[in-house]
Structures are given as C-alpha cells and as structure tokens.
C-alpha cells in the first residue's frame, strides 16, 4: 500500500474553479469564491482611491474624472453584482447553517441569483440615469 509521495491527488486552488462535473451547489461555491476574490481586489483599489484624498483636491478630482470612463463604470457594475451575490449567498449559507432550508439549497441559490439580477438592474439603471 506504499505510496511513494503521499501527496494528495489535487490541483489545489485550481480545483476550486474547475466547473467540470459541478452541479448547482458547486456553481454556487465557484461564484462565491470568484466574487470573494474580486471584492478583495476591489477593496485594495478602493483604499488606494481613498489615499488620493490625502494628496489634495486636484489629485482626487482628476481621479474622479478618470473614474467616469465607461470601462471603469463597467467595473463598478461588476463590484455591485459581486457584492450582491456574495452577500445574499452568505445569507443563504448562514440560514443553512442554522438548519434552515438545507433541502431547498438549490432553490435558495436560484433566489439569490434572482435577487442579484434585480438589484443589479436597479443599480445599473440608476447609475446610467445619474451620469
């Protein structure tokens, strides 16, 4: 039974995102991980942006002008979608962890996706309306 290396047969973090053979709950997990990483990256960008405040009004204003480009606005849209999904899915998992709705975890996930979609649409419309 000797195994020469004893290293588990895994690709580590890559296996988090491998969608092959995954079902509804597994997709929920993949999206949760992706949005978590996206939001973490955004948090750092956000801190850099806040740092501009310390460099005076000019630096801040030029940054705000830069931030009104369509590409950046698309990025902000992603942040909203990611934030909504991650937060709502967190509620789903917390409910499950209290023993609520586990047999309906798929339906809850569809609900999370639905609410994310609706929330993102509302935000998107508001964003385009104000700019």
């Amino acid at each position: 039974m000797e195994n020469p290396t004893k290293k588990p047969n895994t690709r580590g973090i890559l296996d988090w995102f491998d969608p092959r053979g995954r079902r509804v709950g597994g997709w929920g997990f993949i999206l949760n991980r992706l949005t978590a990483i996206g939001l973490t990256v955004y948090l750092y960008l956000h801190l850099i942006m806040l740092g501009k405040l310390a460099q005076g009004p000019e630096a801040y204003d030029s940054f705000i002008a830069f931030a009104k480009q369509p590409l950046i606005m698309f990025g902000e849209m992603l942040v909203i979608i990611g934030g909504l999904y991650h937060g709502l899915n967190g509620v789903r998992i917390a409910l499950n962890s209290f023993g609520v709705g586990v047999p309906a975890q798929k339906q809850l996930l569809y609900g999370v996706l639905g609410l994310t979609l609706v929330g993102s649409l509302i935000f998107g419309l508001r964003m385009f309306a104000t700019h």
Partner: peptide, 9 residues
C-alpha cells in the same frame, strides 16, 4: 465546509 453540496450530489 463551504456549502457546495457536491458531497450530497
């Protein structure tokens, strides 16, 4: 556990 429910599947 991160609630992917792949185990049950």
């Amino acid at each position: 556990c991160h609630s992917a429910y792949e185990c049950t599947a």
